[in-house]
Design a protein around this nucleic acid. Sequence first.
DNA 1: ATGTAATTGCAACCGGGTTGCAAAGTATTT
DNA 2: AAATACTTTGCAACCCGGTTGCAATTACAT
Lengths: 138, 138
Amino acid sequence: MSRDEMENILTSKGVKPTANRMLVLKELERSTHPVSLADLEKSLYPMDKASIFRVLDLFSEKDIIHAIEDGSRSLKYELCLGKAHHSLSAQHAHFYCEGCGSLECLEDVDLPSINIPEKYKVRSVNLMYKGICSKCNK
Amino acid sequence: MSRDEMENILTSKGVKPTANRMLVLKELERSTHPVSLADLEKSLYPMDKASIFRVLDLFSEKDIIHAIEDGSRSLKYELCLGKAHHSLSAQHAHFYCEGCGSLECLEDVDLPSINIPEKYKVRSVNLMYKGICSKCNK
DNA sequence: ATGTAATTGCAACCGGGTTGCAAAGTATTT
DNA sequence: AAATACTTTGCAACCCGGTTGCAATTACAT
C-alpha cells in the first residue's frame, strides 16, 4: 500500500495522518496475522507503548481495526479493510493455537446466522476456535 | 443439587471434594450467569482469592467448568454439566452487553459446523456476540 | 503416633492495559 | 513572524485481574 493510500484511509475515517499513526497502520498492513500491543512495541521501537495504545484505541473507535480476544491474555489487532470486514455477517473466524500461541484467520468458516432475541443490538461477533495448529501437531 | 450429588460430580471427575471445592461448586451451581473470579471472591468471602483461583484452575482442567472470554477483561466461569457441554458441537453462544457488562447464555444459537484444515486439533469453540442487551436498550 | 503429601491463606509479584501530566509539535490568529 | 490555542507524544506511574512462593494447616498413609 502506498503512502497516499494510507493517508487516504486515515483521512476518510476522520483520522489525521500523523507520523505515528502512519507507522502503526503500515505495520498492521505488513502483518499477516493479528498482532498484539507487545508485538507492535517491538516492531515499532522506540515508539512508546502508550502512544501505540492510543493509536490502536483511536483506530478501533473509527473502525479501522478491530480487536480479537483469543484467550492469550493479550488482545490482538487486525486491520479491517474492505466492506467485508464491516458487516457483521462477513466477519471471519480465528484459530488460536494453545501450543505456540499463534492466531490465524479462518476464511472458510462462516459465522452462523443470527437469531438473537428482540431488542438486543448486536455490534460484533467473535468466533474463536482453540486447539493445536498443524505446525504444533507433528 | 444435594451435597451427595456434588460430591459425586467431583469424585467422578477425579477431584477430591474438599470444603472449598464444594463451596465453589455450590456457588457456580447457584448462579444463573457465568461468574468472574471477583464475583466469587465476594460471594465466597472470606475464602482467599488464590484458593478460589486454584479451584477454578483445577475445575477447568477436569472439565467441570469452562472459561469464557467476553472482552470485559475478566474471565467468566460456567459449570458444564451434562454431556451436551462436553462435545464441541453442542457448546452454546454467549451475549455480552457492553452497556451493563452482563453475560448471558444464548441457547438458541447453534455453533457452525467445523471445517478446519487437516491436522488442526480443535479443543474448544467460543462464539461471542457483543452489543446492547434488551434491558439497556430502552 | 509419626511421617508424607495435599490444600489453604497470605503476601508479594507479574504483565497487559490505562491514565496524568508536562514537553513537543501543529495549526490558527494577529 | 510572534503569540496563542489545540493536538499529539513520551515518560512514569498506576490499576487490576491473574498468578506464584512459601509457610501453616489439614488430610492421608504407614
